[in-house]
């Protein structure tokens, strides 16, 4: 082993593909996080209210994808996105819409990857937030109702502030775990293609290190992944900082 100082870092900062992967990485993770958390928090709040008798059914069902092997989820969605035999184009056809080459289209492929990631994690975070919402004492809502606060007002003034700390913890946890999930989805779905439109930092690292045997450069990209993840986590923690309410 010989040390080459910062050569790999110099190479990385002059590598257009690295920057493309960095951009895709940020795009996928930011959009995925925003969509996933808005959806799962809204679902959790809706299902936590005892209006629907069958809510336990939804809880069990929506959680299931997060227990399924990533490889199977990726294979499943690869067939769903398939232009000729896929369910998605089939469904669009039923409504008279023309199908698309979901994974072969530079503009669509990243969103296709995000859809799979949201689909996979939605139930997990929904269940997490449902438990947090149901931990809030009923008396708070009763008091609010007596004071004439509407449902929506209760949601924004009581529910969301009181689950906020759980949401923040989950955000950081999600940013860290979804690195691996992103890799496992893209590796099967597209291998980073077409024309590296869905290349993430993780898949780029894998390609450099394990396909091209450039272990040094792979390690440099690994370091970049760590930095990007930590920076994202810090930004999220700072941006979501609120006064903590206790009950």
């Amino acid at each position: 082993m010989n040390f080459i100082g910062f050569d790999n870092y110099r190479k990385m900062f002059n590598d257009p593909i690295f920057f493309k992967a960095l951009f895709n990485h940020m795009y996928v993770f930011v959009l995925n996080t925003v969509i996933l958390f808005i959806l799962s928090i809204s679902l959790a709040i809706l299902l936590s209210r005892k209006v629907l008798k069958e809510r336990n059914f939804y809880r069990i069902l929506f959680f299931f994808p997060s227990a399924v092997p990533m490889i199977i989820i990726s294979v499943m969605w690869r067939s769903i996105y398939n232009p000729s035999i896929g369910v998605l184009n089939g469904l669009l056809g039923l409504f008279g819409l023309s199908g698309k080459v979901w994974l072969g289209d530079i503009d669509l492929v990243k969103n296709a990857v995000i859809a799979v990631m949201v689909w996979q994690a939605l139930g997990f975070y929904m269940v997490l937030f449902m438990a947090a919402v149901m931990n809030i004492p009923d008396t708070l809502f009763e008091a609010a109702r007596l004071d004439g606060a509407s449902e929506i007002r209760q949601t924004f003034k009581i529910t969301i502030p009181l689950i906020w700390e759980v949401v923040r913890t989950s955000l950081v946890f999600f940013i860290i775990t979804s690195c691996g999930v992103g890799f496992q989805v893209v590796y099967v779905l597209t291998e980073g293609g077409p024309d590296r439109a869905s290349e993430l930092l993780t898949t780029y690292m894998y390609q450099q290190a394990f396909k091209l045997n450039k272990f040094g450069y792979g390690a440099t990209v690994s370091a970049a992944i760590l930095v990007v993840t930590m920076v994202l986590a810090l930004i999220i923690l700072k941006a979501t900082e609120r006064e903590v309410y206790e009950y």
Partner: peptide, 15 residues
Amino acid sequence: GLLVPHIIAVLPLFM
């Protein structure tokens, strides 16, 4: 350990 994405440990682990 909870704060480190496992995937970045793959390469060192391999070595």
